[in-house]
């Protein structure tokens, strides 16, 4: 019998530190896609709140509590990470996404400057506050980007894009670091 070894999406690629920025992998488990059926958004939100203390997020928003995070993930859909979904039978379509995504955290002073090289959305703190999330592009990849702190962002892409995601982010981190070193910052 062959022993199968579970590997995370970015195994062997992360963590990386360049200048003031660190890129690390997140492995929340489980991850569940929650898509409320027509007219059931309120009921789903109430059920989530009583079970986890988290409402179904409005567009472009996320929320977290006790290690669980719920992130708006497109029209009528959210990703629940780090906690099992309550029973939503008849209210929403649930899909296990635990191994479907590559999830990384970019943290450090200048994180938004590195992302500005790749993402066509203004991620500066004045517009994009903690808990705000955006479905957008990172390079040519569809990505979900959430501000999780003053200088940290959580970035989710499809698992098959893990190598490209790390490559793109590493390049942006390196060029930002080179520019800052050159300018003596």
């Amino acid at each position: 019998m062959v022993d199968l070894i579970a590997k995370s999406a970015c195994a062997g690629l992360l963590p990386i530190t360049i200048g003031s920025l660190t890129l690390t992998e997140e492995t929340p488990d489980p991850v569940t896609s929650i898509a409320p059926f027509k007219g059931q958004s309120e009921a789903v939100s109430e059920r989530l709140e009583s079970a986890l203390g988290l409402k179904f997020p409005a567009p472009n928003r996320s929320a977290s509590k006790s290690g669980a995070r719920i992130v708006w993930a497109g029209q009528g859909r959210a990703l629940l990470m780090g906690a099992a979904a309550p029973d939503l039978a008849g209210l929403a379509a649930l899909t296990d996404q635990s191994d479907a995504n590559a999830i990384v955290t970019l943290k450090g002073e200048g994180a938004e400057d590195a992302l500005a090289r790749l993402v066509p959305v203004d991620l500066r703190a004045a517009h994009f506050k903690r808990g705000h999330t955006a479905r957008t592009f990172l390079g040519h990849m569809s990505a979900s980007i959430t501000r999780t702190g003053v200088d940290s962002f959580e970035i989710t892409v499809f698992r098959a894009m893990a190598g490209t995601l790390v490559h793109e982010l590493t390049e942006a981190m390196e060029s930002l670091h080179a520019r800052r070193s050159h300018l003596g910052q």
Binding site: N60, Q75, P120, V121, A134, R135, T136
Partner: peptide, 11 residues
Amino acid sequence: PVCGDRDHREF
């Protein structure tokens, strides 16, 4: 109408 003002490359 859902996400707000975005660059046209997203469309």
